[in-house]
Simulated scan of single mutants.
Amino acid sequence: MTSRILIVDDQAEIRAGIKAMLRLDPGLVVAADLSDGLQVVPYLRENPVDLVLMDIRMPGIDGVEATRRIRKEHPPEKLRVIVLTTFDQDDIVLAALRAGANGFLSKTVSPAELVAGINEVVGGGGALSAAATAALIGHMTDSPPPVIDQELLRRFDALTPRERDVVILVASGLGNDEIAAQMSVSPFTVKTHAVRAMTKVGARDRAQLVSFTFRAGLYP
């Protein structure tokens, strides 16, 4: 199955580098690359794609606003968005999540990590690299919500003790393999618990699950 990718970044060398990395997977086809966030929505109206790789900082409008505009016309289940960032401003990462991004990857990821992240998000999951998790955790713990979101907290009450344990470990920045080793279960079991937890709390992906966990006051 082929996935069509739109690359959005104001730096030509970055766009060229991403295209080169995506050649590792013949199932990933670069439909186009754009240099300006303002071009994204008009392009998508005429050219359907499966996923947008979005730079966080661009002229015209930034990646947060571009993602917000995408979501006005394209729901997350129809079009996926991964934000590429250096994670030096955690509040911007969080803003992109709230705007509707499905995942976050650092611009320094390896080609294999980029391909794996794209395939995970296209398949309905959420890419959340270690750097992304650290950024979210850093922002949340430095600036905890002044008021616990009681509605979100009630959703977490529906989790089983095992699902809750997995969620807390996910929010602490651990990957499936690390959680599996800590809990003495298989990575598949961890993923199953995480997916069930996302369904119960209404999180569209792993990135939003981390955000919901902190907003509900459930700090690791």
Rank of each mutant, 00 (worst) to 15 (best):
D205S: 13
V190A: 04
G202A: 11
S211F: 14
T141N: 03
V40P: 08
R164H: 15
D90K: 12
P111G: 15
A135P: 09
M1R: 10
A101K: 09
A32E: 12
L6M: 04
S129I: 01
L169F: 08
I137H: 14
R162T: 15
L94A: 09
A130P: 00
A180M: 08
V41Y: 05
I168M: 11
A197Q: 09
S186W: 01
R98F: 11
L28A: 12
L159I: 08
S129M: 02
H139S: 05
V170F: 10
L53Y: 05
R206C: 05
A66V: 04
D10T: 10
M140V: 05
N102R: 10
L169D: 00
P145H: 12
R45Q: 15
L38W: 02
V109I: 13
D88V: 12
V93Q: 00
V29P: 01
R69G: 01
T2F: 07
S184H: 13
L159H: 11
Y219G: 04
I118V: 15
D149I: 09
N176A: 15
I137W: 08
E113S: 13
G100S: 05
G37M: 03
V195S: 10
K72M: 14
V210Y: 04
V81F: 01
V115T: 09
E46W: 00
P26M: 02
L128C: 00
A203C: 12
Y219A: 08
R98T: 03
V40T: 13
A32T: 03
R69V: 01
L136P: 02
D177G: 00
A203H: 11
S129H: 11
E46G: 10
D90C: 00
P48C: 06
N47C: 05
K72Q: 15
L128F: 11
M54K: 08
T189R: 15
G63I: 11
Q182S: 08
D157I: 12
V115F: 04
D9P: 10
V83Q: 08
G126R: 10
G126W: 10
V167M: 01
F214S: 05
A194C: 07
A130G: 02
D9M: 14
D149L: 09
I14R: 13
M54F: 08
D55N: 08
T86R: 09
V93R: 10
M140W: 04
E73Q: 10
V83M: 15
A16M: 15
G100M: 05
P42C: 12
M140K: 11
N176S: 14
A207G: 11
L34W: 00
V121K: 03
V41W: 01
